[in-house]
Design a protein around this nucleic acid. Structure first.
Lengths: 264, 264
DNA sequence: CGGAAGGTTGACGAAGCTCAAGCACCGTGG
DNA sequence: CCACGGTGCTTGAGCTTCGTCAACCTTCCG
């Protein structure tokens, strides 16, 4: 039921997908029997932007043997919570997630949005404890990548080690860009425009339309991510619509003028 | 001139240090002759919070053999610039740095402050190009850690690999905390208080006073880092002083009530 | 079909930005 | 030694943007 063909379909149809997935991850379970239906990097649609990127066939097969299980997470459910022990990285196979950081005092903040092909959980390595909640924005599926095994493999496969380091570093760069967006020399309009262009670019990378897409998150999520209120997000989108930069209908967005958005 | 004893002195006297350091890094130079005066992790005051943390003696010696050179950077000079090819991580041995990200358009932003024992440059891994400028806030010295060699060593020394991954992850966590601080549900007062407490804690970790220290950066730097103007930083500090939370005299700060600051 | 969650829009106020003026500090050069 | 200029810091006044509060609408799902 999850062979190459239907898997490809599932990925392509990700936004509407609601296939019932019954097999659950059990990370403490020692050595599950080989399962022809389990995750396979070698055939995954996301292999070029995921952990396996730039590996040769033989190396990818070895990675395959580490990524033995996947897990399905329903909309609104948590993949992990802050404080959970860290054991694995997760590669989003289908669907999308938000990560939420909650300070001791103060309101919780969305620290990132992740879509198919992105990896989640790297924040957990340093204290061996997850540092945020990861919540599914829609019904989703992730590959489970046991971190100790991945580290062991990285000691043997240089390109995999290199790739893991690049993933860590890319997350650092992504966050430092986000910090720049939040640093108050950027107006609400600039932030929303930058956010839309970012989402657009990521859809494009994945082969979807760069100009017409559905935002999986709420206005409140966007506001939290961009450091403003949901009202301001809403007003800004309305204003952009009035100016003919885009059309917005609830969560559906159509960008009409990427250049003008970029010029903000 | 840079043996165990004077090195320890140099670290302790970091803020006032102005020793003339003449030997420069030459990363392309293949195999410099062993130099008794070069950096030594085994005897470095910072070894417990730096790259070498948690290594055994033998392992540390191997790391030593990779960290063969250091580089001195005068106040205001750049350790590297955005766009420079990435080859090495740098561990701050003496002094302190700020990192500055500049977008295509828009004002540049301070993305971090780094003091002795911190490592800089992990943002460069993902594109093999530095992603920000690193500028010395005072006359400083860094250890040069050629990244390819470090990766090679990580494939052999598991605790070093683990430590490198934790450093990456800690940088991610640090940035996501900073993003939370910038997300606008925090007032200027809360941000400044959190900043001061953060600096305080880092001085404490390094054995300096947690309540009395000199800020090496300008008000403008702080403002950029915290997402506000230098005027607001100045006003906030003045207000804290009026309320008896601290005394401020230019760059010299004395914290009088850590708990009250924390309660902001 | 009804209720809850999410989204839009308006009115008002306040936090913090901008602009401006003046002061303190420090290294340089006469 | 002091004068001087530059950089950084402080403080004030007015203004703008965006947050807050509130009312109402839309959409979705059980």
């Amino acid at each position: 039921m999850f062979d190459l063909h239907t898997e490809a379909d599932a990925v392509c149809d990700a936004p509407n997908m609601s296939v019932a997935l019954s097999r659950r991850e059990d990370e403490t379970f020692a050595e599950p029997a080989p399962d022809p239906a389990r995750a396979r990097c070698t055939t995954c649609m996301m292999r070029n932007i995921c952990m396996a990127a730039s590996l040769e066939a033989g190396e990818m097969a070895r990675l395959d043997s580490v990524v033995r299980s996947w897990r399905s997470v329903k909309q609104g459910e948590r993949l992990y919570r802050a404080g959970d022990p860290f054991r694995s990285l997760y590669a989003v196979r289908v669907g999308s997630f938000k990560t939420v950081v909650a300070p001791e005092r103060g309101k919780e903040t969305i620290s990132g949005f992740y879509m198919a092909g992105d990896s989640i959980g790297m924040d957990g390595v340093c204290q061996e404890t997850h540092n945020c909640d990861a919540i599914a924005l829609e019904d989703s599926v992730v590959c489970v990548i046991p971190f100790h095994q991945l580290e062991a493999l990285c000691r043997e496969i240089k390109p995999l080690q290199r790739h893991l380091h690049k993933m860590f570093s890319a997350e650092i760069v992504r966050e430092s860009r986000q910090m720049m967006l939040l640093g108050n020399n950027m107006s609400a309009e600039q932030r929303v425009a930058a956010f839309l262009l970012n989402v657009s670019a990521r859809y494009r990378e994945r082969g979807y339309s760069a100009t017409s897409f559905v935002l999986r998150m709420t206005r409140e999520d966007i506001g939290s991510f961009l450091g403003m209120t949901l009202e301001t997000v809403s007003r800004t989108l309305s204003k952009f619509q009035q100016e003919g930069l885009l059309t917005v209908q609830g969560k559906s967005i159509e960008l009409l003028n990427l250049d003008a958005l970029d010029a903000r």
